[in-house]
Design a protein around this nucleic acid. Structure first.
Lengths: 252, 252
DNA sequence: TAGTGGTCTAGACCACATA
DNA sequence: ATGTGGTCTAGACCACTAC
């Protein structure tokens, strides 16, 4: 009688299911503390590792979050809204609203870990920018911290022959930022492509974004194209998926 | 001397790091078998649970996949490319290519689990479609299976007063599909909004998509708007993040 | 049949958070 | 100071896979 009680489900799954149901039913709301390991051991008469495994399931699902020495708590989802296409002619496609509420724009944004340097393009960047093998590129990276929580970090790659001697090689790119400078250099970006994927973070990424267990990251690779069709910038962004909803608006 | 060897890292993390490095260095390629629990116990002189935990880290990162009774194997990433905006005037923004390779279009697609019925709109759908509380909506859901692997399932919601008596209430919507029928009904979709988020799957979702551990899902909620600005369809799609890269192309 | 991963027990020590 | 989660050990039985 080591494992199965009556059905074919592992104990830790049954416990996790019960907790999950309690969360969904509202018995435990966002921020509430869940029963701890000791509680579960007593309630379900299981070993510590089994109780741990049950709580681990919820954490891996992103439903709960452990705080060392304090307990396991129900997580909330209050995303930022990132407008991929901030058209001018946005008009009022007003009827029908978002599924996810967003209480944005009264929060404090800090830009962090700014780093600018020149290096040889990696294989991936060679392909993405369509430059010769081993070409020099300028690399600009930075991190965004919102109300103390890191939410995104990004790295831009720009061909050196395009941006050399411009403010793009400086920490401060000046008014209008990188794209304004590119325009002045005769390489105004007129078209964009964003590639979006989603995966679990590496250890480094989880650290830089202070992610809790069970939080995937969203990776956006945006390529900017100039009038002549040349790729003039590749921007690789890594987002905390618990902090973001991406929005893309477009016409048929 | 229970835990720390010399640094401040847990044993299982050190083991996981070593394996991860070996994977990234190419020592183990996609599909290769990693050292098993017994191997790790011998190599690193640790208990079974510790070796397990190390392998668990890699699985939760989506880097490895366990097959019962066989071993733990390195996972591959061969995504489909989903073009969010399939503009006509796509032209040749040719220079600069994708970071991720895609070998698409010689594979077999099956549409599965088709279900069409009418029901009362949930709170979320009431908001998204901007219909009165408790309004009836038609619900169309289906699953896509590519080469035997489920990659996506989707559920559409359409206001009953718009689609009543049309082919949209049937399993087969006819040539051109739902949007063609909407156009005939005088509600041609002319504008779209896609909301993209990413999270770990629920048990149900993991099952329907046959996801292995450490695989997040991508959720896309697309709202279609008619000329008069009315929301005429909400389509909620759930994608296997290991099978997809989303692409959005747009002009400045 | 031998080996693999999946589950589970019953202990233990630690660092950390909160009161 | 107490309780929490984090790590770890040394055993065990099971179902499954591959040979």
């Amino acid at each position: 009688m080591t494992s199965q009680g009556s059905t074919r489900q592992p104990k830790y799954q049954r416990i996790a299911d019960a907790l999950r149901a309690a969360i969904r039913s509202g018995e435990y709301g966002p921020g509430d503390r869940l029963p701890g390991e000791n509680d579960l051991m007593a309630t379900y008469d299981v070993a510590r590792m089994t109780a741990r495994q049950a709580l681990g399931v919820l954490q891996n699902e992103g439903l709960a979050e452990a705080r060392k020495g304090a307990g396991v708590f129900v997580r909330a989802f209050r995303p930022l809204r990132r407008h991929g296409i901030q058209r001018l002619a946005q008009e009022q496609w007003g009827s029908g609203r978002s599924i996810w509420s967003t209480d944005s724009e009264d929060r404090e944004l800090i830009v962090d870990q700014v780093e600018v340097h020149e290096e040889r393009a990696s294989d991936e960047i060679v392909v993405a920018l369509d430059v010769p093998d081993g070409s020099p590129v300028w690399v600009r990276s930075r991190r965004f911290v919102l109300d103390g929580k890191p939410v995104l970090f990004a790295t831009s790659y720009l061909p050196s022959d395009v941006v050399a001697d411009s403010a793009i090689t400086q920490s401060d790119t000046g008014p209008g930022g990188t794209y304004a400078r590119l325009a002045e250099l005769g390489h105004k970006p007129v078209h964009f492509r964003e590639e979006v994927r989603c995966r679990m973070p590496s250890t480094d990424e989880a650290e830089r974004l202070a992610l809790s267990m069970g939080t995937p990251i969203i990776q956006i690779v945006r390529t900017a194209f100039a009038e002549d069709g040349r790729a003039v910038e590749v921007n690789e962004m890594t987002l905390d998926s618990a902090s973001y909803v991406l929005e893309y608006d477009f016409d048929a």
